[in-house]
Amino acid sequence: MAEIWTNYGWPLTWIILKIFMIIVPLMISVAYLTLFERKVIGAMHLRKGPNVVGPFGLLQPIADGLKLFFKETVIPTGSNTIVFVLAPIVTFVLALLAWSVIPVGAGLVLADINVGILFLFAISSLGVYGVLMAGWASNSRYAFLGALRSAAQMVSYEVSMGFVIVTVLMCVGSLNLSDIVEAQRTVWFVFPLLPMAIIFFVSTLAETNRHPFDLPEAEAELVAGYNVEYSSMTFALFFLGEYANMILMSAMTVILFLGGWLPPFNLSIFNLIPGPIWFAAKISLCLFVFVWVRATLPRYRYDQLMRLGWKVFLPISIGAVAVIGGVLVASNILPLNNTG
């Protein structure tokens, strides 16, 4: 009996504890990201933003959550019930799943797998299913149109994202996320690979269906896109999933280009601050840009969106793979496999 506990019981309990240590802060961040977004946009519009519930409106996310929780879940009669209920769950679970491989500090990661970046890329490319399933199962024209737009958009921007990741991988020589961060100890990749970083960030905006690429939920033409038929907690799951995805994409940007948990300069005063705090600060910076873009830019037209993805980003990123690979080989600084 004791053997079963030490072999299976304790590791399982420990893993579940670690999962909670990731999910609970994540959920709190998602809740306060909504408040952050409303406050920042409010400031940019010269408004106050939510300021009634609690001091400085700090209890607003909890009030919003409670409101959604106590509402009735309406499932349309014409809908495909199982897929309809499954869609928000898929969105939400995928947004959480990816966090299992994100290193928040040196060695602070749930699963330090060898193909971490591919895992992240796979999970982020699956996000489209929640949207597609929701749009189809709702049996509503607006939701369906939103889902189709979203599917086309996410598939298009994934391609250039993949090539940008390849350029970073060529500079690292490993698919492990911790290795990718450690490779940036001398210089963050955002400096040598600035164009790639910009393309990656814009692609993450499109991948998370955020402004200026939020055509899937263009409220003026499609009411609210794929989630128009959803109410109460099913809607809340979409909402949480979308915001968790924003944080996830920011984390990916930080790991690939902004040096993860590493401090900006190798100074002792910066090294005093623990890695997870640097990581969180950099993610917050990315999230601020997400919100800033939303407050500033108008929405793209659909054909312009497709043009940007296929005719601008894709050629540039493919060309960059060739150029950066060529430069690395020519100057003989290609990171070779020295693990074996």
Binding site: F121, A122, L126
Partner: peptide, 8 residues
């Protein structure tokens, strides 16, 4: 497999 078949 997941990226190519499921994702695309």
């Amino acid at each position: 497999l997941v990226i190519v078949y499921v994702g695309a």
